[in-house]
Every structure is written in C-alpha cells, then in structure tokens.
Simulated assay, not measured.
Amino acid sequence: MTDTDPTIALLRRRRSVPPMTMAGPGPTADEMDTILSLAARVPDHGKLAPWRFIVFEGEARARAGALIAAVYAADNPGAPANRIELETRRLQHAPAVVAVVSRAAPHVKIPEWEQLMSAGAASMNLVVAANALGFATAWLTEWYNYDARVAEAFGLAPHEKLAGFVHIGRPTVAVEDRVRPVMADIVSRF
C-alpha cells in the first residue's frame, strides 16, 4: 500500500487541530450519524458496547460550558473573570463536540481493560471518520474530563468515565505536523 491508497493517505495527513482555530459549519445531522455509526464499529469483545456518545452542538455547547465554569468557580472563588470566561467557552470553539463515555464495568467474562481499549478505539474511529468527511478534529482531555461533578452534570452514571471530548469543525489554519516517534525506538520483533 502506498500513499495513493485513500485510507493510507488519510491516516498520514490526519492531524489534531486546536479547537480555537476551528470554524463551522459542523457536521450535518446525516454526517454526524455517519461519524457516530463508524465510531461504534470497533472491536468489542462480548458485544457490550462499553462506550456511549454525548453530542454537544448549538446552544448545548454553551450550557455545558456554563456547568464547567460553575465547577471551576466553586473550586477557585478568586478566579479572574477572563479565566471563568475561558472555562465557559471550553466546548464552544468547534461547532460540534462529542464526549466519548467509557461504560467499562466488571464482567464475568470480559476484562475491564478490554472494555477501556474499546472506548479508546471508538474515540479514534470517531476522529478518523470525521477527518474522512473533511472535518478537522482534536481529541482532548482537560481538568473537567476527570471531575466527578462535571461527569454527573453531563449525566454519567457513577461507574462511567469520560474518555475525552472530540472537537469537530473546519480548519481555518494550516497545521504543521508534530515530531513523530522514530520507528526504530518503538518497534521490536520477537
């Protein structure tokens, strides 16, 4: 396979794009359905679907940001107004944001580790599917990704965890590739 193969070419050019440099329009309803259905086509031992998706679009992004900012303000009562505004806008830069929720739980047959990896695979499939449709993406975790109050406000059950937030939009700037690992440093053969 060479770079003339469309899948190989897509994977070579995929880059994370800072959400602050994304613009609309975001995915249409049909495009989002495609992105999410492809995100769900991952290895899933036991067919547990140990993940789910929360879509933030339109006004929902501002409501989510207000929840994030309220938690931040409660923990940082002396925070300056510009920092509260930054927290408020966390999910408002890209026109669409998808939270991937890991539903990994003890199971008689399927190890939790496999369930966690399946959620990671769902996140990456989401990124690749969105990029294949011409969108830019960034799969991010920030402090609020790990905050139980934010998780509860977003409707997560006590055993669920956020695998991250995938920001989806249109690139407005060219993004340089970052330094990638030297293959000889990370590959061995048994």
Rank of each mutant, 00 (worst) to 15 (best):
T4K: 14
T7E: 09
A9H: 14
A9S: 14
A9M: 10
L11K: 07
L11M: 11
R13V: 09
R14S: 06
R14W: 04
R14V: 04
V17D: 03
V17E: 04
V17F: 06
M22I: 07
A23L: 06
P25K: 10
P25S: 08
G26W: 00
P27H: 06
P27Y: 03
D30C: 05
M32F: 04
M32A: 06
D33T: 13
I35D: 01
L38F: 09
L38A: 09
A40W: 02
R41V: 02
P43M: 09
K47Y: 13
F56M: 07
E59Q: 14
A64Q: 03
A64W: 01
G65P: 00
A66T: 08
L67C: 05
A69Q: 00
A69L: 01
A70Q: 04
D75C: 10
P77R: 11
A79Y: 04
I84F: 06
E85L: 14
T88E: 10
R89G: 04
R90D: 05
L91C: 08
Q92C: 12
H93F: 13
P95F: 06
V97T: 09
S102F: 03
A104E: 03
H107C: 08
H107I: 04
I110A: 06
E112Y: 09
W113V: 15
W113L: 15
W113G: 15
W113H: 15
E114H: 08
Q115G: 08
M117K: 13
A119Y: 01
A121I: 01
A121N: 03
M124K: 04
N125L: 03
L126D: 00
N131Y: 11
G134M: 06
F135K: 05
A136Y: 00
L140P: 01
T141S: 13
D147V: 05
D147G: 02
A148S: 15
V150W: 02
A151H: 13
E152D: 09
P158N: 09
H159G: 11
K161E: 15
G164R: 00
F165P: 00
V166D: 00
I168C: 03
R170G: 05
R170W: 06
T172P: 03
D177G: 14
V179R: 14
R180N: 03
P181F: 08
P181N: 12
V182P: 01
V182T: 07
M183S: 14
A184L: 12
D185E: 08
D185W: 01
D185R: 03
V187Q: 09
R189N: 13
F190R: 13
